[in-house]
């Protein structure tokens, strides 16, 4: 699977935490420039799968390749290069609580050691404007911010180095509907400007319908469906029936029928 069109290739992945099995034989490819959404109930291993792709967990069996090379067992320099090409938005933001908002976003830029402070200042302001955070919040500390703001600043930090590959873990959870729509628009705009590959885990059917090119559904340690939204919705499986054909799911799917 050294094909250049696959950004991520997961082959025969097993994940175990002690005796608890999270994934059984997951096979998954993410193509360049697409948005792949992972869906599944709570505890179905969406976050664990993203952590596997990031190299934060070690697979019990199987391999994970990013940009054609295995995540584990790389040279330090290669690994760093790969990390600079990835941006991650964690579920709870994971902002550095000891740094101000400005320094949080500037940190990955400073770590590159090629950008001067003037450029960093302009870039940080651009990123803050992108996520619609007022300049006056730049000097505040993460503990003083609301949940929605933390999420948006975390996205600004994830986008700090203009990554090719973006991981979003529950990007719209905890945002009000307006912000959530704004977030979806923001991602859509970014995709027109850059070839951005996105792997997203979400519970929110609205975000899923608006953004995803393909959907992977996880249930009971296995991947039960993988394909376009239409293909996945038409798969017969109890979890998918519950997820998409509940009251809310039905309404959103009907509103977006032209997408299917």
């Amino acid at each position: 699977m050294t094909n250049g069109n696959y950004v991520i290739a997961v082959e025969g992945l097993y994940t175990r935490f002690g005796r608890h099995v999270v994934h059984e034989n997951i096979n998954l490819c993410v193509r360049r420039g697409e948005v792949l959404t992972l869906v599944g109930g709570s505890g179905s291993g969406k976050t664990a799968l993203i952590r596997q792709m990031l190299g934060l967990e070690t697979p019990a069996q199987g391999t994970v390749r990013i940009f054609g090379e295995p995540v584990h067992g790389r040279q330090h320099k290669q690994l760093q290069y790969m990390r600079n090409r990835c941006g991650v938005l964690f579920q709870k933001g994971a902002l550095f609580s000891a740094l101000s908002v400005y320094d949080n976003i500037a940190l990955p830029m400073r770590e590159l050691r090629t950008l001067d402070e003037g450029m960093i200042r302009n870039l940080v302001m651009l990123k803050l404007k992108m996520v619609e955070i007022d300049t006056k919040h730049a000097i505040r500390m993460p503990a003083e911010l609301s949940g929605g703001m933390i999420k948006r600043i975390a996205l600004a930090r994830a986008m700090a180095l203009d990554p090719e590959l973006l991981f979003l873990d529950e990007p719209t959870a905890g945002l009000d509907p307006e912000l959530s729509d704004g977030f979806v628009k923001l991602i859509q705009t970014l995709r027109t400007e850059l070839t951005l590959t996105i792997v997203m885990a979400t519970h929110d059917v609205e975000t899923l319908v608006a953004l995803s090119d393909r959907v992977a559904a996880l249930d009971e340690q296995r991947m039960v469906a993988l394909g376009t939204l239409r293909e996945v919705v038409n798969t017969r499986h109890p979890f998918i029936a519950k997820f998409f054909c509940g009251e809310r799911g039905k309404k959103i799917l009907e509103n977006n029928r032209y997408n299917l």
């Binding site: 400005y102 302009n122 302001m125 651009l126 404007k129 300049t135 006056k136 730049a138 705009t189 400007e193």
Partner: peptide, 17 residues
């Protein structure tokens, strides 16, 4: 045209605190 937006944004960049 697709790069136009980048510079539009830069024109409206707010001053740093």
């Amino acid at each position: 045209r697709e790069h136009e937006r980048l510079f539009d944004r830069l024109e409206k960049i707010p001053a740093p605190p």
